[in-house]
Design a protein around this nucleic acid. Structure first.
Length: 420
DNA sequence: CGAAATAAACATG
DNA sequence: CATGTTTATTTCG
């Protein structure tokens, strides 16, 4: 196999676009290494120059022999604080939110940030073409932020827009779509990465690694072939499904002010980021399988009620507390934690919601940042949970799509008897 | 067979 | 109604 991946998870993910696209990309040896270039950009057949060696290392599924299909690990720093980008963009003006940041981040560990290379937005996104429908809505939340953020809007990506790459256009992009229908070009080009991977990419490129659902949709429209047909709504459902099911994503709610309604974002889990990839599958699915036969009855889920609420701040919805064997029952899904943030927090609307695809910053290639969140007192995104082990279900194979080695497989010792 | 897609019921706000 | 969850079924490698 060409890929280091082991599991077949990705098989289908093979990106087939390479046929056409790859030639260009990899060919550019001298291309300046762009940190973060979207990996998947190539999927889209973009002319993005990929750093040859670096990426080559990874081996992703079979993109093409050389086309690696990898996800880069996100910089923690980045993820550490979603707002950081704000600072960057909005300069010191930063709001209050969060606090300010610059100072905090800057000095100590932040050294790197100042210059986060926001580089060009990923070519993937062409600014103009994308019209994010909701942009407006997202923009400044209605009342939202007190004030500081107002500028957010101004944050459009600087020059990035201009530079968009001409070459790729919709067409290229169009092709991406998760395993779409079978038919047609089957083996030819089609193997788009699975939803989860696409979502991962979207989030990964997003500031703060988080996006609102709508933005995710938009991203898909822009970067995949959805969008063309309005009628099809299934993909959205699928996206939601994936977001919910995949452990690599977590929902975060940020409340703005007392009266306003919180905005929710989906973001990559620290683990996902750290590992540089997402899990192949779902977190729950494995638990159950094998219950077929039940036909009549009800299939819907029975819901429980929400428990925590009332706090205004950022809540993370979804986070698994790692192993707590005992209370699994009722809490089957009860994740939903709250993260502490400042209420006055500004929220990161700006970029986050903005046309998303504008500029995605890349990581600070640099050095190490202290990682600590760049944000001062807030954001604690990292919740525990980080156990190496599978926090989620006890499924058996967990394959992570990672960049480097491919992926990690976490095997569950227990594992149910795999029956076959 | 397992993973991912897909469709749909159900739950909440 | 939009967003989320969870089943359940189908498709594909």
């Amino acid at each position: 196999m060409d890929f280091s991946f082991h599991s077949q998870n990705f098989d289908r993910a093979q990106i087939s676009g390479q046929g056409d696209s790859k030639p260009g990309l990899l060919s550019q040896p001298e291309a300046p290494y762009q940190p973060g270039l979207s990996d998947w950009a190539r999927w889209r057949s973009q002319p993005a120059p990929m750093p040859p060696h670096q990426y080559q290392g990874y081996s992703f599924p079979r993109v093409a022999d050389d086309e690696p299909y990898g996800l880069d690990p996100l910089p923690q720093e980045l993820l550490g604080d979603p707002n950081a980008y704000i600072d960057v963009y909005r300069s010191h003006v930063t709001p209050t939110m969060a606090g300010a940041p610059s100072e905090v981040l800057g000095p100590q560990d932040g050294e790197g940030h100042s210059d986060w290379p926001l580089l060009q937005s990923s070519p993937a996104f062409k600014a103009q073409s994308y019209n994010y429908p909701q942009l407006e809505s997202l923009q400044p939340p209605p009342d939202s932020p007190p004030s500081p953020l107002s500028e957010v809007s101004s944050y459009h990506s600087p020059h990035s827009l201009a530079a968009s790459s001409p070459g790729m256009t919709a067409q290229t992009a169009d092709r991406l779509s998760p395993r779409s229908s079978t038919g047609e070009n089957n083996q030819e080009r089609q193997g788009h990465p699975p939803y989860s991977v696409l979502i991962y990419q979207a989030l990964k490129e997003a500031p703060g690694n988080k996006l609102q659902l709508q933005n995710i949709y938009s991203w898909f429209e822009a970067n995949t072939d959805k969008g063309g047909d309005p009628s099809a709504k299934g993909w959205q459902n699928s996206i939601r499904h994936n977001l919910s099911m995949n452990a690599g994503f977590e929902a975060v709610k940020e409340e703005v002010g007392p009266g306003k309604r919180a905005v929710s974002f989906w973001r990559l889990t620290p683990e996902a980021i750290r590992s540089g990839g997402i899990q192949s599958t779902t977190r729950y699915r494995k638990l159950q399988h094998q219950k077929k036969g039940v036909s009549s009855g009800h299939r819907g889920a029975t819901r429980q009620q929400s428990e925590s609420k009332g706090v205004h701040a950022t809540k993370v919805v979804k986070s698994r507390s790692a192993s707590s064997p005992h209370n699994e029952r009722t809490e089957a899904y009860h994740r939903r934690q709250v993260i502490g943030t400042n209420p006055s927090f500004g929220h990161e609307y700006g970029p986050t919601s903005l046309p998303a695809m504008q500029r995605y910053m890349q990581h600070p290639i640099g050095p190490v940042v202290g990682c600590t969140s760049m944000i001062p007192g807030n954001n604690t995104i990292f919740m525990d949970t980080m156990e190496p082990g599978p926090a989620f279900d006890a499924g058996h194979t967990h394959d992570w799509y990672t960049t480097e080695s491919g992926f990690n497989r976490v095997h569950n010792p227990l594992e149910s008897p795999s029956r076959s």
